[in-house]
Nucleic acid binder design. Structure first.
Lengths: 359, 359
DNA sequence: GACTAAATTGCATGCGTATGCAGACCATCC
DNA sequence: GGATGGTCTGCATACGCATGCAATTTAGTC
């Protein structure tokens, strides 16, 4: 007893790793039977199934999904790539996506590219994990990588961004339509010198919002839309761009920002310059992040229907379908809705009211 | 040719699932060699290694980490359980945790309990994935579950919350010390009627912050600390509690909230009541969420050193150690620091300044 | 050139599970 | 009673890779 021999029993005891084999042995049945007890489809008598479940609970047996994956070629894992967790828009997105994934019995493998790391760089790493599907948020992959995924029958959906030529799914809100709503709204409420402050220049979200806004203004016979480059979608970018813009002569009377966080930076910048919102200038964002509803900002914005978008994104992955039976690339655009708050005001009405009150 | 026979080649071609076996065949070597080419430790000639890597790239071969896990008994996955993604504190936490996990060559399996779901409910599900370690944020597990994890040699660390008797690791900021700093600061700046607004009543974070605050006030001979129950850590709770509190007679001159989000709700509530911050009342939060730095709130608060905490949390998991060689449960408390902004003011100095300016 | 030691490679096996196939068992019917 | 059909279970194998051991090659030495 002094010298310890490493027997199988000892190892099992130490590792406390209960396998189907162990359960089978205590019950005097085959391992197959244990497997079938935990399968939905396999044929097994209710009586036996119950016996197995009971024994499994007693021994603390849980099927090893890793081993299962090897055979079934499905890991029940969905990779979610989040390029950005800091912008308050994305935690909400992540939350909804994860809920959708989990509600379908899948789990989330989360990837956050380190600063300076491209999505293409982490894709190989990600594919090694044999995930059943991939969700990219605010990021795109190369067409070469898209082809690799297609060859592996691993569906990819791009959330909130799309690349026209790319053979992957895309779900996004209808940014063009949203931006048009903003244009309509600002014109209807008597604004005459609107400006657009862009975020990340080449992002489709940015381009669509700008183009939708500018082109709709033109349709409404308002040809001059000031444009200012923010550089990225951050608070700081919105703040800095607003300062630059408002220090120049010929103030706009309305600012439409590429996203809410920028707009909030814009509000703070305007206030610092002693320009009051909305009396002197109206401010509109895009996304409807939780912060936009706070009384201190009360930002008029376009609400992105995140829950619906997340549902659409996960739906399009066809998680229930076996490999090779997936549908072709789909693009879904989901319309947003204008949420009017007090960062904007009607510049027609106040004139009449003002006159009336002064008489 | 009309009838297609399902040969192995055909299947391989269709599935495009390249295995080590495939690479071995094209090179005329054994599968073991391929395996060794992708291992750090195994012995293989540089020449052969190069040949294998080249062939692997050409065929698009990537080792299947799932299959590897079956042998090595390590999945290189860390489960992170996030009970809350909405509070702006947690996206930052998640970001830092994921960075830490990834920088060690591990991946993150993210679990978000659905509303009404307990952490204990999802643990079995989580353990099935054979994760190498578990990080719980703002959540605790039962001692029974802790024992199961211990038996499996799966280290668990509780982030930002701890349960004294539980045999799991814990990393949190030193909430008692932080709250004491707030007490010291408020007294030093001449506040005389401080109040504490609590969040989730039984959370250790809440209890420690309240107790640290109240006990320190007593030490400083300030025996009356008003207390108000928020109920949870939300904006709404902070807002509602503040309204209740400030409508009653005998205003406090300083409010210390259990967390920043509540404090921000408190600021908005005070402003709505026409009570100005900080002139009429000082407001202090806890966490230093990004929002606290915005000019519209500019919240005095205790900064939690999230990066350091995340590093400590992942360090304590001993990811590099093989199973069975893990260290015993550790509790680490990391001190925070007071960040003074303009939601508080010195109630001693202004008197003098006021008199001076009026002379 | 022969021998030893070291480096490299192949062979065989196992990780824990799912599943096709065949056998065992039971009930039903003519 | 034998044949038929159906249900359930066990056997054997495979998933893709890592690794101990044996076989082989290479280098090094006298």
């Amino acid at each position: 007893m002094a010298r310890r021999s490493i027997t199988k029993a000892a190892v099992t005891k130490a590792g406390t790793h209960v396998t189907a084999e162990d359960v089978a042995r205590t019950l005097g049945v085959s391992q197959s039977t244990i497997s079938r007890a935990f399968s939905m489809t396999a044929s097994i008598s209710d009586e036996m199934k119950l016996k197995v479940i009971k024994a499994a609970n007693k021994l603390g047996y849980q099927p090893n999904v890793i081993a299962r994956s090897l055979i079934t070629r499905r890991t029940n894992m969905v990779a979610i790539v989040m390029a950005n967790l800091v912008d308050p828009f994305y935690p909400v997105v992540l939350d909804e996506l994860v809920q959708q994934v989990q509600s379908r019995g899948f789990q989330t493998l989360l990837f956050v590219p380190s600063p300076g790391q491209d999505v293409d760089d982490i894709m190989p790493n990600l594919l090694q994990y044999q995930v059943d599907a991939i969700v990219l948020t605010s990021a795109t992959i190369s067409s070469a990588m898209a082809r690799i995924c297609a060859a592996r029958d691993t569906p990819v959906v791009s959330f909130n961004r799309y690349v026209p030529g790319l053979q992957i799914h895309a779900v996004s809100s209808d940014n063009i339509a949203g931006a048009r709503q903003v244009a309509d709204f600002l014109v209807a409420t008597g604004h005459e010198r609107p400006a657009f402050i862009s975020g990340e220049r080449d992002a489709t979200t940015n381009r669509d919002r700008r183009n939708g806004f500018v082109s709709r203004l033109k349709q409404l016979k308002m040809n001059s839309c000031i444009q200012e480059e923010g550089g990225d979608f951050s608070y700081e970018a919105g703040y800095a761009a607003t300062k630059r813009l408002l220090r120049r002569a010929g103030h706009p009377d309305a600012l439409f920002f590429a996203c809410d966080v920028m707009a909030i930076g814009g509000i703070d910048a305007a206030r610092e310059l002693g320009i009051s919102v909305p009396e002197d200038i109206s401010i509109v964002g895009y996304d409807d992040v939780p912060m936009a509803a706070l009384p201190s900002y009360s930002l008029t914005t376009i609400r992105q229907p995140i829950r619906e978008m997340a549902k659409a994104a996960v739906d399009v992955l066809d998680l229930a379908e076996p490999r090779g039976m997936k549908s072709g690339p789909t693009t879904r655009m989901i319309p947003g809705s204008l949420i009017t708050r007090s960062s904007t005001m009607n510049r027609r009405a106040p004139v009449r009211v003002g006159k009336a009150s002064r008489r």
